[in-house]
Design a protein around this nucleic acid. Structure first.
Lengths: 147, 147
DNA sequence: TTGCTCCTCACGTCACGTGAGGTGGC
DNA sequence: TTGCTCCTCACGTCACGTGAGGTGGC
């Protein structure tokens, strides 16, 4: 299909995602990422493919925007991986409609759960933004009065 | 004007704000809050008035929603305090229009700075939400096709 | 007086930061 | 071969968590 996938080393991945290499190694250390590029002999360089980089990008975004602990993040990622596993199963075989329906329903529940978290956060942000805008308008009204 | 202000103890403040007492003590320890209720003899209970509770609520909200370190939060709060000081000056005296204009301009800059941070975050959240909604729609489309 | 909450150490933990000292691939 | 990045300890730090042991106010 595509050319041989270019694999990145940890420094380049860190640079692209805006974190340090230590962060990535720590996540691997606590089992959040699996081991990059399959098994690796001790001392050898870690390498990352596009899918691994994207997964890490998603993870960092969820953590930052939702303010999750790494344990909570881990739970979300497990669900995400289960979903990915289902999708593989989906593509490779099993055209049984009933089975397909189950897979889709599970994926939907997962997405819906994330949406719920994101939506709650957005509402908090929205209300903070409204308050600040209101404050600014009061200041502007005072300024108008002075003029 | 109003009745004697009711002052709260640290446990009640923590309960209302959804944090632990340790968090509040720690913020005081690193000088983020000033000392509650003015000076306090060692060993005596801390007490908090409405203004102090509200200030802490604002601080926790900013930190949580913007993902700030306590050092960054401290900088925002200093600006906020400068603003409060100006407002006192405003109310108590100094009806000089030029001076008033300066005070208002400073307040506006401060609010604008916070708005900028909040807006950036909201945009990130919005784009995450859009992606999730799109994912859900794709799942729904598949489900429709199955039916 | 009895609980309950408060107080101050002080050590533990989570999520990394920051070198030290050494090895590996373009 | 020379840099540059990578590797693995391992201790430090930030933002609290979690008791231990004791005191204070309704």
């Amino acid at each position: 299909m595509s050319a041989v996938e270019e694999r990145l080393r940890i420094g380049e991945v860190a640079r692209r995602l805006g974190v340090t290499t230590r962060t990535i190694r720590y996540y691997e250390e606590i089992g959040l990422l699996g081991s990059p590029g399959g098994e690796r002999e001790a001392g050898r360089h870690r390498t990352y493919g596009d899918a691994e980089v994207e997964r890490l990008r998603d993870a960092l975004r969820l953590k930052s925007l939702l303010g999750l602990s790494l344990e909570e993040l881990g739970e979300l990622l497990e669900a995400e991986d289960a979903r990915a596993a289902r999708r593989d199963e989906w593509q490779h075989a099993d055209p049984d409609p009933a089975r397909r329906r189950v897979i889709l329903d599970e994926a939907r529940v997962y997405v819906e759960r994330q949406l719920e978290l994101v939506r709650r956060r957005r509402e908090e942000i929205d209300s903070l933004e409204s308050e600040l805008i209101e404050r600014r308008e009061r200041i502007d009204a005072c300024l108008d009065e002075l003029a």
